[in-house]
Deep mutational scan, measured.
Amino acid sequence: EEEEKKKEEIARLLGVSKEDVERILKKNNLDIEQLLRRVQREN
């Protein structure tokens, strides 16, 4: 699934687990696209 791939990509870029990414998304109330763009910009 596309969303899972995005979570895995974010996890890889941040050096965290996919579960961490899911927690970040919930905690910050971000959607996956916003987080992915933010992470890609910083790297």
Rank of each mutant, 00 (worst) to 15 (best):
D20R: 09
L35W: 05
G15F: 03
K26R: 14
D31V: 04
E1Y: 13
E8W: 13
E3P: 07
E8H: 11
K7Y: 07
D20P: 00
E4M: 08
I32C: 08
K7E: 02
K26F: 09
L30G: 05
Q34N: 07
S17Q: 07
N28K: 09
D31K: 07
Q34W: 09
L36K: 02
E4I: 07
E2N: 11
L14G: 00
L35R: 00
S17V: 03
E22V: 07
R37Q: 14
K6T: 08
E42I: 10
E1K: 12
N28C: 15
E1V: 12
E42Q: 12
E2L: 10
V16K: 05
L13R: 06
V21Y: 01
K6H: 07
I24M: 11
N28F: 15
K26Q: 12
K27W: 11
E2D: 12
R12E: 04
K6W: 11
K27N: 13
R41F: 09
N28E: 15
N29L: 06
R41T: 11
V21R: 00
E1F: 13
R41H: 11
E42M: 08
I32E: 03
I10F: 03
R41V: 08
E1R: 12
I10N: 00
L14W: 04
V39C: 14
V16M: 08
I10M: 03
R12D: 03
D20K: 08
V16L: 10
K5T: 09
R12I: 07
N43S: 13
R12K: 09
E42K: 07
K26Y: 09
L25T: 02
A11R: 04
E33Y: 06
N43K: 11
K27F: 13
K5M: 12
L13Q: 03
K7D: 01
E9H: 11
S17E: 05
E19M: 11
G15M: 05
N28H: 15
E3L: 14
K7G: 01
K7F: 06
K5E: 09
E22M: 08
N29H: 11
V16D: 00
K6L: 14
E8V: 11
S17R: 10
N28W: 15
D20E: 15
K5W: 14
I24R: 03
N43T: 13
K5V: 10
E22K: 03
D31I: 03
R23H: 10
D20H: 11
R37M: 08
K18G: 03
I32A: 14
R38T: 11
Q40D: 04
I32H: 02
K6Y: 08
R38F: 15
N29E: 06
N28P: 03
A11M: 08
E9G: 04
E1H: 12
L25Q: 02
L14K: 01
V21W: 01
R12C: 11
L30A: 04
G15T: 02
R37H: 11
E1T: 13
E9L: 15
K5G: 09
K26H: 09
L36G: 01
V21C: 02
R38E: 15
R37W: 04
K18M: 10
E2T: 12
N29I: 04
V16P: 00
E9V: 12
E42R: 08
N29A: 07
R38V: 13
D20C: 11
D31A: 07
E3A: 13
R38Y: 15
R38I: 15
K5P: 04
R38M: 15
E9N: 06
K7H: 03
L25V: 05
R41Y: 08
V21H: 00
I10T: 04
N28T: 15
R41I: 09
V39L: 15
K7C: 06
D31H: 05
